[in-house]
Simulated scan of single mutants.
Amino acid sequence: MRDIRVFTNQPLAVDAEVLLEENSTHHLTTVLRLKTGAAIVLFNGTGGEYHAILGQATGKQARVLITGFTETNRESPLYISLGIGLSRGDRMDWVIQKATEVGIAEITPLFTARSEVRLKGDRADKKIQHWRKIAINACEQCYRNIPPIINAPISPDLWSQSLSTDQNFVLHHRSNQTVGELRTQSINCVGLLVGPEGGLTDSEITSSLQSGFQALTIGPRILRTETAPIVAITLLQSLWGDFI
Rank of each mutant, 00 (worst) to 15 (best):
N168K: 12
F169D: 00
Q167M: 13
A57N: 13
G59T: 09
I40R: 08
L32K: 11
K98T: 11
L239R: 06
S87F: 00
Q214D: 07
T184A: 15
F169W: 10
I66K: 07
T72R: 14
F169E: 01
R5W: 09
L86M: 13
M92S: 04
W94Y: 14
L171I: 04
V190T: 14
G121L: 11
S24E: 15
T201M: 04
V41L: 10
F213S: 10
Q177G: 00
A124I: 05
V95F: 01
K120I: 00
V117M: 04
W159C: 00
R123K: 15
T225D: 01
L82K: 02
S203Q: 13
L42T: 09
T8L: 10
L110M: 03
L20E: 10
S155K: 12
I230P: 02
R132H: 10
R132T: 08
G59Y: 08
Q10K: 15
Q185S: 11
G180S: 13
I128R: 12
S208H: 10
C142A: 07
N44E: 08
N188D: 11
L236H: 04
S76T: 09
W131F: 13
L182D: 06
N44F: 09
R123S: 12
E22G: 06
F213K: 00
L193R: 02
I222C: 05
L12Y: 08
G48V: 03
N188L: 09
I40D: 03
A152H: 09
P11A: 11
G55E: 11
E140N: 05
W94V: 03
V64G: 04
G55I: 12
P109H: 05
H51K: 13
W240P: 04
G198Q: 05
R63P: 01
T225I: 01
Q185G: 01
R123D: 12
T58N: 15
D15G: 00
H51W: 11
Q161Y: 00
A99D: 03
S238D: 04
H130Y: 11
D3A: 13
A38R: 05
N188Y: 03
S207E: 08
I149A: 13
A62R: 06
W94N: 01
H26Y: 15
L19H: 12
V117H: 04
E197P: 00
Q185N: 10
R91K: 15
R33I: 08
T58F: 07
T46N: 14
G85W: 00
S76Q: 04
L32V: 08
S164V: 08
I96C: 04
L28T: 07
G68E: 12
S162T: 04
V194I: 14
K60S: 12
K126C: 06
I134S: 02
V18W: 06
E49M: 07
D122V: 14
